[in-house]
Amino acid sequence: MTQIPPQFWSGPVVAAALAECDLPTVLEKVRRAHGWTQGQLAEAVGYSQSWVSKVLRGRQPLTVDQVREISIQIGVPLHCSDSEPEGMTIRRSAETSARPWR
């Protein structure tokens, strides 16, 4: 997999999405930066294309574990604050505390 240049992460849209813990926006920007289809993004993160589509449309909540796993797999640096931005949802994982993710 090609590395995304470091300046990608500090671009206004991506930096704002990282600050707001908006993983769907980050994933969409990563997908476009690589020139991937949703299917290729799904392969990179280890989920189905339909699951990725639901995440990108905000219809699939994510657990903290999923966010960590996906971030590691595609090299997403997460700089999320401990505050809870409004309008975010997450499924609770039994072994981790809940954090808000879109």
Rank of each mutant, 00 (worst) to 15 (best):
A15E: 14
D82A: 11
G46T: 06
L56A: 13
S53A: 14
Q38D: 08
S50G: 03
L41I: 05
G58M: 12
E84D: 07
D22E: 10
K54C: 08
S93E: 14
A17W: 01
G11D: 12
V52N: 00
Q40P: 02
H79Q: 10
E28K: 09
T63R: 13
G39S: 11
Q40I: 04
I74N: 00
L41K: 03
V13T: 12
S10W: 02
S10L: 10
I70A: 00
E95S: 13
L18R: 05
G39A: 15
T37S: 15
T25C: 10
E69N: 08
Q7I: 15
V76P: 01
T89R: 14
E95L: 13
V13H: 10
T2A: 12
R68K: 12
E28T: 10
A94Q: 15
G58T: 12
F8L: 06
A15V: 01
Q40V: 02
R59V: 06
E84W: 13
S50I: 02
Q3V: 08
A17V: 08
Y47L: 13
A98Y: 09
V30S: 00
T25L: 10
R32W: 07
S71L: 11
V64P: 00
G87Q: 05
Y47K: 11
R57L: 15
Q38C: 05
A16P: 02
L27M: 15
H79S: 15
Q3N: 13
S48H: 03
A19S: 13
K54F: 05
E43D: 15
E69A: 09
S53L: 06
A15H: 13
G35Y: 04
L56R: 01
R99A: 09
P5R: 09
E43V: 05
Q3F: 12
Q40G: 03
V55F: 13
V64R: 04
E95W: 06
W51G: 00
S10F: 07
Q73G: 06
E86N: 09
I70K: 00
L18D: 00
P61G: 02
W9Q: 00
P100G: 13
E86V: 12
E86A: 14
L41C: 11
Y47S: 04
A94V: 14
G75S: 14
R91D: 10
I90V: 14
R99H: 13
L18N: 03
V76D: 00
A42D: 03
A42P: 12
Y47T: 02
G58E: 12
L62N: 04
L27H: 04
T2P: 14
A15F: 08
Q66Y: 09
V67R: 03
A17N: 05
